[in-house]
Amino acid sequence: MISPGCHRLIVDLGMNNGDDTAYYLRQGFRVVAVDANPALVETAQTRFAREIAEGRLVVLNRALSAEAGAVTFYVNTDNDHWSSIDVGWAGREGSHCQAISIATVSLRDIFANYGVPYYLKIDIEGADHIALAQLGQELVLPTYVSVEDCRFGFEYISVLETAGYKSFKLSDQSIVQSLRDETTQGTFPQGASGPYADALPGRWRASNDFVEHYACTVRDRAGQRLAPRSRWWDIHAALADCHSS
């Protein structure tokens, strides 16, 4: 079910440096940007001071959880992209982390306070499954959603399908810098998530077709990675039967 008021809102769950948020704002959307890293939130509050003052952007310094409270968040001081509530994820490859306490917020509370978004971007390093589990409990869903692929990709596809999503695409994140931002006709900066919804290259696939495509492109059903490490992916899903249109 699509929320009637959701079409001019995007939730950027895992804002990081704010480049994705900037893209959504340029497109004329209201944005709720969520990040657990206080330093990144502080930088965003300066970068987007005008948009915040205009009421077009809300920046939340929160970690996602099913319950209100606080969690330990591990800030990776070598690579902030790897910061996570999962210490193993945050400290991979022997990188250095700093443990801090961060207040939490649930997806349901975000939707209740700000509206169900047109598009939900999920990129919260090692905690994406928490967002997907909560999404599966919602009666009103974003029209489009994306999640960063990992070794649980097959599970993510299944959860999204069970939640009600009918059409799927893969986004090759290694080529995002070569794509065009239709809003400005510019290119995307390194690390940006890039286009979404119908602006995303490629065709929408039904879930069964998409699983076969994924199993031939990213990793096989035994979990063995097929794509080289230089390529990484996001999984996009749509509520509509885009593949049959």
Rank of each mutant, 00 (worst) to 15 (best):
D19C: 11
L239C: 12
Y144D: 12
I175N: 06
L57A: 07
V211A: 07
A206V: 03
C6V: 05
N37T: 09
N113K: 14
A63M: 07
S244Q: 14
T72A: 14
R26Y: 00
A44E: 11
F154R: 13
D209A: 11
D35S: 07
G191L: 11
S158K: 12
R26L: 06
L57D: 07
R56T: 02
A237T: 01
A39W: 06
I122G: 12
L239A: 09
F29L: 02
S230W: 01
G136Q: 13
N61R: 09
V159W: 00
D149N: 15
A192N: 15
I85K: 01
L239R: 15
E148F: 06
Y24E: 07
L160A: 14
E51F: 06
D20H: 03
R221C: 06
R231S: 05
A63I: 05
E182G: 01
W89P: 00
Y23G: 09
I85F: 00
Y74F: 11
N113T: 09
V11L: 15
N79V: 13
A53I: 00
R151N: 06
T143Y: 14
C216H: 14
C150S: 14
A163W: 03
M15L: 13
R219S: 05
F154C: 00
G153N: 06
R221D: 09
V147E: 08
G126Y: 00
F152S: 10
G94L: 07
Q45K: 15
L160H: 02
R231W: 02
F29M: 07
R219G: 04
A39F: 08
S193G: 15
H243D: 12
G223Q: 09
L141H: 02
S178Y: 03
F48T: 11
S65M: 12
A36P: 00
G28S: 10
V145A: 15
N37Q: 11
D128G: 11
E51W: 04
R231Q: 14
T21P: 01
A197M: 08
L170M: 08
G153C: 10
A127C: 10
H7W: 01
S83V: 02
E212D: 15
P195A: 08
I2A: 07
R8W: 02
G136W: 03
P4L: 10
V75D: 02
D181I: 09
F168V: 03
A66T: 07
V218D: 08
G223N: 03
A22T: 02
V105R: 15
G194Y: 12
I110V: 15
A103F: 01
F111A: 14
F210A: 04
D20K: 02
W89S: 10
R180V: 04
R47W: 00
A240F: 11
C242Q: 12
L40I: 06
I85V: 15
G91F: 00
M1T: 04
I124N: 01
A53W: 01
I85C: 07
G14C: 03
A103T: 05
